[in-house]
Computed example of a mutant assay.
Amino acid sequence: MPFPLRSLLGSIFLFFLTAIPFVHASWKHVALRGHGPLIKPEPHHRPKFVPGPLKQAHASFYEGGFGTFGGACGYEDIDRDAYGLDTAALSRVMFKNGETCGACYEIKCLNSSQMCKPGQPTIVVTATNLCPPNYYQESDNGRWCNPPREHFDLAESSYLKIAALKGGIVPVQYRRVPCKRQGGIRFTITGNPYYNLVKVWNVGGAGDVVRVQVKGDDKLKWTDLKRHWGQKWETDATLVGQALSFRVRASDGRYSASWRVTPKNWQFGQTYQGKNFS
Rank of each mutant, 00 (worst) to 15 (best):
I107N: 03
Q273Y: 11
A88K: 07
L160T: 14
F22K: 08
F13I: 13
Y62N: 01
C109S: 06
P263G: 12
R227D: 02
G168K: 09
K215A: 13
L220W: 08
E42T: 11
P21G: 12
E150R: 15
P133M: 02
I123N: 03
T188M: 06
T188K: 15
G34L: 11
V93L: 03
H44G: 03
H44K: 14
G241M: 09
K226F: 04
K226Y: 12
R80W: 01
W266C: 00
T188V: 01
G168E: 05
K199L: 15
K161L: 13
P47G: 08
Y83E: 10
W222Y: 09
H58P: 00
K215G: 09
F69M: 11
C104A: 15
Q56N: 12
H228M: 09
V177G: 09
E234W: 10
R143D: 13
F69T: 12
K28E: 09
A155V: 08
E150A: 13
T68K: 07
F268N: 04
Y135V: 07
V23M: 14
K264Y: 05
N111V: 01
W229N: 03
F61W: 15
S113F: 05
N97D: 14
G71F: 01
L9Y: 13
P171F: 05
T87H: 06
V124E: 13
T100I: 03
T87N: 14
F16T: 11
Q242I: 07
L154K: 09
A72Y: 05
G216S: 09
L220F: 12
A72H: 05
D81I: 01
Y136M: 06
D86R: 12
Q120F: 08
L32G: 03
A206F: 04
H35K: 11
V30E: 11
P178F: 11
R6I: 13
A82T: 08
S158I: 11
L225I: 10
L38A: 07
